[in-house]
Design a protein around this nucleic acid. Structure first.
Length: 246
DNA sequence: AAACCCCACAACCGCAGACGG
DNA sequence: GCCGTCTGCGGTTGTGGGGTT
């Protein structure tokens, strides 16, 4: 299709963002290939969509996950597994990508800690499953401190390899391990989480994400988009949008 | 001060399902 | 029913910033 000649990749520029916002305002957030073409952005429709959904979409929240959100993610992941988009729909303002990323880093870290705690508490026994030197190496063992003592020269990126990885350690394995750890704490999670999070289930996000009932005139998009944040280079869009929508 | 490491996050890739001609 | 295209999703990778040694 459009693949081939001069298709841009990599980070988006401010100019590109503005352009995309304008064209989405004009044509809606559906026809991505069309938007990619008419906008003059040398991007694929896919890339445009992704940029919009994960970054430019109004109503996106920024910043750290709250404890409530974190718990909800845990709860929903336990229920649905890696259905990130589904989970994201229950977390207004959060994208599947964000949740996915969050899960990968934070949950893995937590799992490591839990695992370590378990190991230390049962270290007097044979604790073969905790061994970092024999038997199948669990994913988060590979990033754990015990191991890093022996392989502390871990290069950047190696932890990612753990995912796909040399030991054939798949995502499923990771989830299994995490679940294992969660089993020890599952009750706690459920206890803490027996709220249904009413505040997190308003129809509003469905509305945003819904079938592009969202429309924005070009002028409005200009107003909303007031430039980039000084600190992180992100558009000030999200914040402006809060005002726009609420 | 420099090197290294870890974390967070943006972005890409491949695949599958939906949809229209 | 078939085929091509578009869209959405999940997995993976790349990179910059901040903290630590």
């Amino acid at each position: 299709m459009e693949e081939g000649q001069g298709i841009r990749k990599g980070p988006w520029t401010e100019q590109e963002d503005i352009q995309l916002i304008c064209f989405v305002g004009l044509f809606g957030d559906r026809r991505w290939d069309f938007i990619a073409k008419v906008s003059g952005l040398n991007r694929t429709g896919k890339s445009c969509r992704l940029r919009w959904v994960n970054y430019l979409h109004p109503g996106l929240k920024r910043g750290k996950m709250s404890t409530q959100e974190e718990r909800l993610v845990l709860e929903l992941h336990a229920k649905w597994g890696n259905r990130w988009s589904k989970i994201a729909r229950k977390l207004p303002g959060r994208t599947d990508n964000e949740i996915k990323n969050y899960w990968r880093t934070h949950m893995r870290k937590k799992a490591q800690e839990k695992r370590r705690a378990l190991c230390s508490s049962s270290s007097s026994s044979s604790s073969s499953s905790c061994s970092s030197s024999s038997g199948p190496v669990k994913f988060f063992d590979s990033g754990g401190s015990e191991i890093s003592a022996s392989s502390s020269t871990k290069k950047k990126g190696e932890e990612n390899q753990g995912v796909g990885d040399p030991n054939g350690y798949s995502m499923d394995d990771i989830w299994k391990d995490i679940d294992m750890c969660d089993d020890h704490e599952g009750l706690i999670i459920n206890q803490d989480c027996n709220y249904s999070c009413p505040a997190l289930n308003p129809p509003s996000w469905e509305y945003y994400c819904g079938d592009s009932s969202w429309k924005m005139e070009e002028e409005e998009s200009k107003l909303i988009f007031s430039g980039y944040d000084d600190h992180n280079g992100r558009p000030r869009l999200a914040q402006a949008n809060q005002n726009f929508f609420y």
